[in-house]
């Protein structure tokens, strides 16, 4: 059981809750989502509570995060994109913390489920569509007609642009989900090697040093991936929001 690399992704019902024929049970996934929210919101609110002119340690981190996300958004979508700042910040914070929570042994990784990343990606695309259509109306569809393309090529280019737009939520969600899933499976597999090899005997214990080194290195790599994927998710969100604000490239 402990060696099954898939076991960590199982969803276990903690408090059964059925509405109609929908299963809305409170599960380990729900628990970690709420823990993510509690940790993230708790930290941000406590850190900004002092309102110090000279920031303390926690406030510095909170300000750093704030300015990091603000810069990312401003660079991608301009000053007008700052209306989406709370949205982008929440996405970045939620994904980052959910990823980080997954790095604790025995913790559930919320973002390793495609439905979670899928809903977040759909949320991003919905916001892009709603804001784009509300702001620009039909002109929003100029997004699919790049400037300076000869009319002859348009029948070819427009479908490509449409397909690329539709594939955005797919790539956005699959990228995050697959990174989390694969990373955790790889970690688990190598960690499992240590256990099964050391069970063989003294030679196995010596041999287990290799997967041990691998596990340590992979853990470091996973931490990088955790930050990187949260950043990529936020950055792509910013770029898609830029399309909603300025559809004509």
């Amino acid at each position: 059981m402990s060696n099954d690399p898939i076991h960590q992704f199982h969803i276990n019902r903690l408090v059964p809750l059925e509405v109609g024929n929908l299963d809305l049970s409170f599960t380990n996934s729900s628990l970690f989502m709420l823990a993510t929210v509690a940790a993230g919101a708790g930290f941000m609110i406590l850190a900004s509570g002092g309102r110090g002119l000279v920031p303390g340690r926690a406030q510095s981190v909170a300000e750093l995060l704030y300015e990091f996300v603000a810069k990312t958004l401003r660079d991608a979508a301009g000053q007008s994109g700052m209306v989406f700042f709370p949205f982008v910040f929440s996405l970045f914070g939620f994904v980052l913390l959910a990823n980080l929570f997954g790095m604790f042994p025995y913790f559930f990784t919320v973002t390793s489920h495609i439905i979670i990343t899928g809903v977040l990606a759909l949320l991003v695309i919905s916001v892009v569509l709603v804001v784009g259509l509300a702001k620009h109306g039909v002109k929003f569809f100029k997004l699919f007609v790049p400037d300076g393309v000869p009319a002859m090529l348009l029948p070819l280019v427009v479908p490509i642009e449409v397909i690329s737009f539709i594939s955005r939520p797919v790539s956005l969600s699959v990228r995050l989900f697959a990174n989390m899933l694969a990373g955790h499976i790889t970690l688990k597999v190598f960690a499992g090697f240590i256990v099964s090899m050391s069970a063989v005997g003294i030679g196995g214990i010596v041999g287990a040093i290799l997967p041990m080194i691998m596990t340590v290195a992979l853990t470091a790599l996973e931490f990088l991936v955790v930050f990187l994927q949260a950043y990529v998710f936020a950055l792509l969100t910013c770029m898609y929001l830029n399309d909603a604000l300025h559809p004509s490239h």
Partner: peptide, 18 residues
């Protein structure tokens, strides 16, 4: 269904607090 339900609650709460 359960994951979507709790994600919506969590993320809405997080967004509100942020």
């Amino acid at each position: 269904a359960s994951q979507i339900f709790w994600l919506v609650i969590s993320f809405a709460l997080f967004y509100y607090l942020m």
